[in-house]
């Protein structure tokens, strides 16, 4: 067991536990979108789970650190909040905010994070621009909404884990990145009808089953 201090709370954690995981399990919320406990190589792509640790010069992403004895962690310093707010606003600047018509409404991670960071859903000071993307809608079971997607990559991970190889993937690059279902669309060859793991893991309902539309 290693003793750490998080926001002045003393915690006893099994050494080697993921720091973000340890905080979440002890009811210390740190905003996060792309973290998955079982994923070995953390994406650290959402840039929301920053914390400050004594002895480290800059805030660090908590999902990429393991607990070490004697760690002193702060989750709510001004530097951390600034980074989180900026990252969140950048995410929202390309997000279609239409909660009333979104199936994730009220259970959406983005709404939860906005409330936690005391931010509106529409970013202030940033242009709001939806990306111009060409998206295929010919998947027999799944529907993808690129303007809801936060590109956390959880769906790709769970799909690969469940089915041995992914049936969906990132396509494109930079601002044009989106999830693609490229491949054989024969309903009999796709495991999607019974699986739907990607729709369950998606934090923002960017992928939903066609029957739900």
């Amino acid at each position: 067991m290693s003793k750490i201090i998080v926001d002045e709370q003393y915690l006893e954690i099994i050494e080697g536990t993921n720091l973000l995981q340890a905080c979440l399990e002890n009811n210390i919320y740190i905003p996060n979108l792309c973290y998955l406990k079982e994923r070995k190589e953390k994406n650290a792509s959402c840039r929301l789970c920053f914390v400050e640790i004594e002895g480290m010069p800059k805030p660090v992403t908590s999902c990429t650190l393991d607990v070490e004895d004697g760690m002193v962690v702060r989750t709510d310093t001004p530097a951390v909040r600034r980074l989180q707010r900026t990252a969140f606003q950048l995410l929202m600047s390309v997000h279609e905010v239409d909660c009333a018509h979104c199936p994730a409404n009220k259970k959406c991670e983005l709404q939860k994070i906005a409330r936690f960071l005391k931010l509106g859903l529409k970013p202030k000071g940033l242009d709001h621009s939806l990306r111009e993307l060409e998206t295929d809608h010919d998947h027999p079971f799944l529907e993808y909404f690129p303007h809801r997607c936060v590109l956390c990559g959880k769906c790709i991970y769970v799909c690969k884990k469940r089915n041995g190889r992914p049936y969906l993937t990132f396509a494109g690059r930079g601002l044009d990145t989106q999830i693609s279902f490229f491949g054989d669309k024969d309903p009999l060859k796709l495991p999607c009808a019974e699986c739907l793991a990607c729709t369950l893991i998606c934090p923002v309902a960017a992928i939903i089953a066609k029957t739900d539309t």
């Binding site: 190889r165 992914p166 049936y167 969906l168 993937t169 990132f170 396509a171 494109g172 690059r173 693609s180 279902f181 490229f182 491949g183 054989d184």
Partner: peptide
């Protein structure tokens, strides 16, 4: 062509979408 992507994925025994992911990046 999409059909050649399928062919490449069969040859390498990886998902067609994985091939597309790499190809669309460049």
């Amino acid at each position: 062509a999409p059909i050649t992507i399928q062919m490449v994925s069969d040859h390498l025994n990886i998902g067609a979408c994985e091939v597309y992911s790499v190809a669309s990046f460049y």
